[in-house]
């Protein structure tokens, strides 16, 4: 602990970057990577992570500018501060990569994930599932007499929490998009 009583390795809520680049604290970072939308670009990014032994917690990709042929890849990754810096530098070296943003250090961010839950059940369990879905502001996007499909958008933690609640109520399938993230404001 530093004299400021701020947990070592934290940067998101502090005015100063207190991270020691050589610390062996494992951090989670969300990276926004703007790339040319061309054949093989995703393979280059994934190949970098597998080839150099970096972690991918979540990865999403889609075209964001059709005329400009640009896609945004959002990667949630973990590693020591030195490894995170390496990941950013290595990403920046890939020729079709235009920008690498470390959203975790660049400022406050909005991080959201979309998930679909299929919950099968009858009677009280079915009613309880529907009630919890309302509390979590999940939408029913498909319904049969024996099942629901709920759609929910939120942080990964919220989706984890909802999944835990649905498990005893007949959760049979989950599909998650992975995290999409943007910085807040116009910074």
């Amino acid at each position: 602990m530093s004299p400021l009583k701020i947990k070592k390795g934290s940067s998101r809520h502090s005015a100063y970057d207190l991270r020691d680049p050589n610390a062996d604290v494992i951090e989670t970072h969300t990276l926004g990577v703007i790339v040319d939308n061309e054949a093989g670009v995703l393979a280059r990014v994934i190949g970098l992570f597998s080839g150099r032994g970096y972690n991918i917690e979540s990865l999403t990709v889609a075209e964001i500018d059709h005329l400009g042929h640009r896609s945004r890849i959002t990667i949630v990754t973990t590693g020591t501060p030195q490894v995170i810096e390496q990941i950013k530098a290595q990403l920046g070296r890939i020729i079709p990569v235009h920008e690498v943003h470390d959203l975790t250090v660049e400022g406050p961010t909005v991080e959201r994930e979309l998930a679909l839950f299929k919950v099968a059940g009858k009677g009280d369990a079915r009613i309880e599932a529907l009630r919890l879905a309302e509390i979590f502001r999940a939408n029913v996007v498909d319904s049969t007499l024996e099942s629901f499909v709920f759609e929910m958008t939120g942080t990964s933690e919220k989706i984890d929490a909802f999944a835990e609640l649905m498990r005893p109520l007949g959760l049979s399938d989950i599909a998650r998009t992975g995290v999409a993230a943007l910085s807040r404001g116009m910074a």
Binding site: N22, Q82, Q86
Partner: peptide, 11 residues
Amino acid sequence: IDQSSLNKVVH
């Protein structure tokens, strides 16, 4: 000239 060579191995 390569950003990824800086602080890769030795600080």
